[in-house]
Design a protein around this nucleic acid. Sequence first.
DNA 1: AGCTTCTTTCACACTCCCTTAACATTTCTC
DNA 2: GAGAAATGTTAAGGGAGTGTGAAAGAAGCT
Lengths: 233, 233
Amino acid sequence: MASNHKIFVVEDDNDISRLLRHHLEVAGYRVRAFSTTNQVLSEAQKDRPSLFLLDIMVPGGDGLELCRQIRQGGNNIAGVPIIFLTAKTDETDRIVGLEMGADDYVTKPFSPRELVARVKAVLRRSERPLPPAVINLGDLEIDSSSMILTVSGEPKMTTATEFRLLYHLASHAGKVFTRDQLLDAVWRDTSFVTPRSVDVYVRKLREKIERDPENPRYLKTVRGAGYRFEAPK
Amino acid sequence: MASNHKIFVVEDDNDISRLLRHHLEVAGYRVRAFSTTNQVLSEAQKDRPSLFLLDIMVPGGDGLELCRQIRQGGNNIAGVPIIFLTAKTDETDRIVGLEMGADDYVTKPFSPRELVARVKAVLRRSERPLPPAVINLGDLEIDSSSMILTVSGEPKMTTATEFRLLYHLASHAGKVFTRDQLLDAVWRDTSFVTPRSVDVYVRKLREKIERDPENPRYLKTVRGAGYRFEAPK
DNA sequence: AGCTTCTTTCACACTCCCTTAACATTTCTC
DNA sequence: GAGAAATGTTAAGGGAGTGTGAAAGAAGCT
């Protein structure tokens, strides 16, 4: 249920802001709330949010202006999706806002479910499509679109987490990952997971892909650092 | 990002027209806007657009009429896809599907995300050869033109949603879809629908297509990910 | 209106996966 | 070679994800 997405909420009304935060957090997102536009831009450049949720009528230079600044090239956040919060009646605001480059809007009063659904939809669309669907290495075939692992022609059952881990390692073959990096990349919610969990999964994968799990050809341990997937020559 | 597609927009409200143009252009399409239907047809025959975006309520002979004229044989644009813009309250399903031969519709007020997504989807569909109207897999026959499902020669009744879901899964056999992806592809407005609704439909489909619904051969669960339709060998 | 049919949600049962903790083993350091 | 640190391995409980029936909610039909 949890995801790694961080959302910047810019809303001056404290009640609404708390409400937004609450619903978004329940939905598994991390939230940072701002009551004015002042520091949003500079913080965003440091903190790299996945999405902005802007009230169109916040004080301190309004939301539209902030939207334009975000969209402006030159910073590293120009591509981050934006959702506007608008009053139901104010059609012109909405239109202007959308023209400014927002990705969607939610009208107040909003239903929590719709809010979350729109956030989810925008984030889903902004995710870049996965790199090559099928990875072939040695006698392995890792097909991410069907989530099927084949070893020497034999299909092997894997759990979702096993598969994601394998896919991540194999699609960056040669690169060493620390346990923490793997947790960040592969696990949905890293907050309460021991890095040692990775070890357990590495073992499970070795049992499935290695001839001799004790002497792995693919999934190598890099002592003191982490793990590396090694492509056979 | 750029594509060679040219879109004819027919819309009398100037604000909305500008908005449409803006978002379509940002998405990489070329746009020609018309505020009445008068010259659309003649211009289209010269200029060959890839898609029409018609407000259903434009003055000068309404959008439906224009749609009919476009679809009429004898010109060279009969096959160009059409998307309608409609007010939310309208009864759109019938208009789109049966009578007029439109390809999709977008309700006002629309979100840019949705607009562009639908335009993209329709263009994508029109570019590649149509997916086969009849899918034959194992003892299943899924005929999308007549919306008839046959299992081992036995015709089975399905609802529209059941059929669309089955068709989507079967026409991408092997690929895993998350519940959210299925909602996007099969349902119209996902904002108010729980992903779990998909489960219910999967179950209904299993009851109709599987010998043993508890051990499905076709419609497999991929735990932690979603569902996959598996073609038998 | 009343009826039917489809859609969506809810609640509960159940299964399987995930995480952890504990112990075993290997590798490094002095 | 002894101790420390890192990794390998195993099994169990608790929890998340899914299956399922029923009932409320929409939408169309007569």
